[in-house]
Amino acid sequence: MHSELLMKYFKFFNFFILLATLLLAGCISSTNSRHPVSSMHSTRKLAQDLIEQDWHVFVRFPWSRFRERISRDFQPDKNVFVNNAQDALASAVPVSLSFTVDKALTNDEKLAVTITWQRKIADRNTGDLTLDEGKCTIVYLKEAMGWRIYQVQGSSIFAF
């Protein structure tokens, strides 16, 4: 009973935040200002885009293209990482990935993105779906050709 009541209050609170946001937006927009886009917001957006791109390349997996997305200095071993990804794709078909960016931290030329993810993969033999969940930190290194994966800590989205 108490939990239902709490849920109602919680839902009301979220609607209130939405309304407040819209009102605030109205006030700010009417001032005709030039507001900078939040740096934290843009870092998180970049992190989200990079992971989506890398997942897309992984799913289609021309070997050379996925290899290109991994930094030459990948820690601890680029070849082991790429070979494991190739073996994973031989064992199952990735169907979908959804994730939420928890942290996106930058340091010099690195971007460390911590995500909580949910993934569906289909067994190659039976077609049955397996649902996995995990948390990992993907570290990107900024190189001349763009952002490249430098390290994957925790439960990797590229390993089944």
């Binding site: 946001t21 200002s33 934290m40």
Partner: peptide, 18 residues
């Protein structure tokens, strides 16, 4: 939050997103 001056032209700034 109104004038949109860049950081070079001011002492401080709050920005963000909701």
């Amino acid at each position: 939050f109104k004038t949109g001056r860049q950081m070079a032209e001011r002492s401080g700034q709050i920005s963000g997103s909701i």
